[in-house]
């Protein structure tokens, strides 16, 4: 069997918040389970492979967003891969560009995104900066807390085709409306970094299970449980509850 390919897309454009960590986490969690996995880092100008199982987009500044959209549209392979059933996990600026439209610059120029998520992003009344805690309903119906750090000026609203990823307990989330992230088919967008898959292993495994089409055995890591305990306690102590 060929190795599972994790594709980190345009790290030098969309990787400002340690976003490559999400890719490292996905690859390593497969490796720890004895599943052969490779990490492909695609830089702008390089062709995007269409063979990936999970594609990752991270955080970046305005000019990087425009450049990334241009590059991905011209390349086209990401769209092919998603048609085949690959998973796209898009964080922060990556979440915004995966949507229909977003804005950049002091004049709030509207830029057309990749159109993979039925969401639109406009400049919010305040910048959302701080620890965030959300509740994610897992496919089995159980609830899982997602802990992360959000830092975004855009507020994102969902269209009919996109469903929320989680509900906000503490923090701003999409638009200070109690909603966090978006899910549409195999495309998942979210604001928290941290990186978010490092702090939330169940979400990482969920993405892998979606991509592989099968369940993965649990992977106990007590120090990760301790990190989650600390971060959840810290945000509940200092954060403003919705």
């Amino acid at each position: 069997m060929s190795p599972v390919e994790i594709v980190l897309v345009y790290q030098s454009l969309l990787g400002i918040y340690g976003d490559r960590g999400n890719a490292m986490v996905l690859r390593q969690r497969l490796a720890w389970r004895g599943i052969d996995a490779t990490l492909t880092v695609v830089e702008p100008g390089d062709p995007v492979p269409s063979t990936g199982s999970v594609y990752l987009l991270g955080g970046g500044e305005d000019a990087a967003q425009i450049s990334a959209v241009k590059g991905l549209k011209a390349d086209g392979h990401l769209f092919d891969a998603l048609d085949r059933g690959a998973v796209l996990f898009a964080v922060c600026a990556g979440f915004q560009i995966a949507g229909n439209t977003f804005t950049v610059g002091e004049q709030d120029d509207v830029i057309e995104g990749l159109g993979l998520l039925d969401v639109d992003t406009r400049r919010g009344p305040v910048r959302a900066v701080g620890e965030i805690l959300t509740r994610w309903k897992r496919p089995d119906g159980s609830e899982y807390l997602i802990t992360g750090f959000e830092n975004h000026g855009g507020f994102t609203t969902l269209g009919a085709k996109a469903k929320p990823l989680a509900s906000v307990e503490i923090g701003v989330g999409n638009a200070n409306d109690g909603i966090e992230g978006a899910v549409q088919g195999t495309v998942v967008g979210t604001y928290p970094h941290g990186p978010v898959l490092a702090r939330n292993p169940a979400l990482a495994d969920h993405l892998l299970e979606r991509a592989l089409g099968r369940d993965l055995e649990p992977l106990p890591l007590p120090e990760l449980d301790e990190l989650r305990r600390q971060r959840i306690a810290a945000v509940r102590k200092t954060g403003t509850r919705r």
């Binding site: 918040y17 340690g18 960590g21």
Partner: peptide, 9 residues
């Protein structure tokens, strides 16, 4: 800096 995501950079 309140955000330690940079640890992964």
């Amino acid at each position: 800096g309140r955000d330690v995501s940079w640890l992964w950079d």
